[in-house]
């Protein structure tokens, strides 16, 4: 009985007390967020982008995939806000539905490349010596190629499809996070609190994942936000080159590519997906810059 009440009391107190400094910290972050103009603009763009992706099936006026030959190559009008393409598909609907594909690519690529890079980087930085040598030389090999060329090579080898695009971009992108996490892990592992926990008797994996890793996350997260724009650009680039998502799926890059031969007379086919790409990339860059500034300890207090 006694122990149960202690636990309840402890948990309640834990809940409030534990969150108090976190709440204070978030309030301060929010204040900084509001006072950083670019971060606000970026946030607004990204929030709109995500909302569009979520509500895409409700917004779209036409089927984005099935063709309608009687309405092909129509200029922008109130019927077709962004016009139609050579198969009579509504560009507006395709751009809206395309946001879902882009978001899915960003999410998975961030997860795979961020996760893989952070993991390898922490392992390399923590163990050092030959483990570090092996992992970092592999990283150097990946960095020796221009990233788009390498992504193209992977996409071409795997064959064009949504999954393969994601794999190709992830495989190219993890190196940045590996280097960042390694540098951070090397710094953290020399801290006295790591030695202290080792003296308590913790093993390598406990120290690495419960003590070193959490301290490496914040620069990785900032970099991840900054890279999201690049991820879209790479995906669009692959799509444009025909190495990305297969044609009927409305991926923005391949849509730009579709309108290539009509660019002079029917400019709207390529322009609207292009603008969509530009806006979202800009939004992520603003957001990334903003987060980097907000995380900067010199600006914080």
């Amino acid at each position: 009985m006694k122990s149960i009440t202690i636990e309840k009391r402890g948990k309640l107190r834990d809940f409030i007390a534990r969150r108090k400094p976190i709440i204070e910290d978030w309030k301060h972050t929010l204040y900084l967020w509001k006072s950083t103009k670019l971060a606000m603009i970026g946030t607004v763009i990204i929030v709109i982008f995500i909302l569009i992706a979520i509500f895409a099936p409700i917004i779209v006026p036409y089927d984005p995939i099935s063709s309608n030959m009687s309405a092909r190559l129509q200029p922008p009008s109130w019927d077709h806000l962004f016009g139609t393409d050579q198969f009579g598909r509504d560009i507006f609907s395709r751009v809206i539905v395309g946001s879902r594909i882009e978001l899915w690519i960003i999410f998975l690529v961030s997860l795979i490349s961020g996760g893989l890079g952070t993991f390898l980087g922490v392992v390399a930085g923590y163990f050092g010596k030959f483990v570090d040598e092996i992992i970092m030389r592999i990283t150097d090999m990946f960095l020796a190629f221009p990233s788009l060329v390498l992504a193209m090579a992977f996409a071409a080898a795997l064959g064009p499809s949504l999954t393969n695009t994601i794999i190709a971009i992830s495989v190219v992108g993890w190196t940045v996070f590996a280097r960042l996490a390694r540098a951070e892990a090397m710094k953290i592992k020399k801290q006295p609190y790591i030695e202290a926990i080792r003296a308590v008797g913790a093993g390598n994996s406990r120290i690495m994942f419960l003590h070193v890793l959490p301290m490496c996350l914040s620069p990785v997260l900032v970099q991840l936000t900054l890279r999201m724009g690049t991820i879209i650009l790479t995906a669009a680039g692959l799509g444009f080159l025909g190495l990305g998502v297969r044609p009927p799926l409305p991926e923005w890059g391949s849509m730009v590519s579709d309108g290539r031969s009509y660019l002079v007379a029917q400019w709207w086919i390529s322009t609207f997906p292009g603008i969509a790409i530009a806006f979202v990339v800009l939004g992520f860059n603003f957001l990334g810059d903003g987060i980097r500034d907000i995380m900067d300890p010199r600006l914080r207090r």
């Binding site: 801290q191 006295p192 609190y193 030695e195 202290a196 926990i197 003590h211 301290m215």
Partner: peptide
């Protein structure tokens, strides 16, 4: 250890 400021995980 001698440095109480760095010996506790922040």
């Amino acid at each position: 250890s001698q440095d109480p400021y760095n010996s506790l995980h922040p």
